[in-house]
Structures are given as C-alpha cells and as structure tokens.
C-alpha cells in the first residue's frame, strides 16, 4: 500500500496527463463518421510510432562496446522508423483519395 501511494506521489503529474489524455482520446474519436475510421486508425497507428523515441534513447545510453546491444537497438530503431514512416505515408495515401472534386 505504501509503495503504491509512493508511486502516486512520485508520478502525480504523469498520472494526471494519462487521465486527461484518455478523455481527449475518447472525445476526439467519438464524433467521427465511419468513412474516416480506416484513415483514423492508420493515423493513430503512425502516432504510436512515437515509441521510436524510446529506441533512440536506448541507443544513446548504450555502452558502445556492447555490440549485441547495439545490434538489437539498431533493429528497434529500424522497426520504429518503419512504424512512423510507413504509418504516415499510408495514411496520406488514403487521404489523398478523399480530395473533393469540384
């Protein structure tokens, strides 16, 4: 129990952010027409590519002698980039088609 309260104390700002972000996420999605569900899912997919920042931080902290670690970190950054770049480009490609013809 004490550990849990300690956790709340130490991270109170982050916990607030989590709670608020949950509401923002719900609010953003609730009134979207079904037409845009696929692009939206694809866009959200690209945004969670933000996990690549973690992969970059791993690399920056890494002991340069630890070759196995560097190799895995390298793969992590490649995969994270795939998520980000592929995600945004595919979403853009989908949305390109929604141009309104006048």
């Amino acid at each position: 129990m004490e550990a849990f309260l300690q956790f709340i104390n130490d991270n109170i700002e982050m916990i607030y952010i989590v709670v608020l972000m949950i509401f923002v996420g719900i609010e953003l999605i609730s009134h979207v027409p079904a037409v845009l569900h696929t692009p939206l899912m694809s866009g959200a997919n690209a945004i969670h590519g933000v996990v690549i920042i973690g992969a970059i931080l791993v690399m920056l902290h890494m002991d340069p002698e630890n070759y196995a670690g560097l190799a895995i970190g390298f793969i992590a950054v490649v995969l994270g980039t795939l998520n980000v770049v592929g995600g945004f480009v595919v979403t853009d490609r989908m949305l390109e088609m929604f141009k309104t013809r006048k």
């Binding site: 509401f23 719900i26 969670h48």
Partner: peptide, 8 residues
C-alpha cells in the same frame, strides 16, 4: 502519444 492512441 501512447495514451492518446491507446484511448482513441
């Protein structure tokens, strides 16, 4: 970014 996508 993570929580936003998780919730949405």
């Amino acid at each position: 970014g993570g929580v936003l996508v998780g919730s949405a």
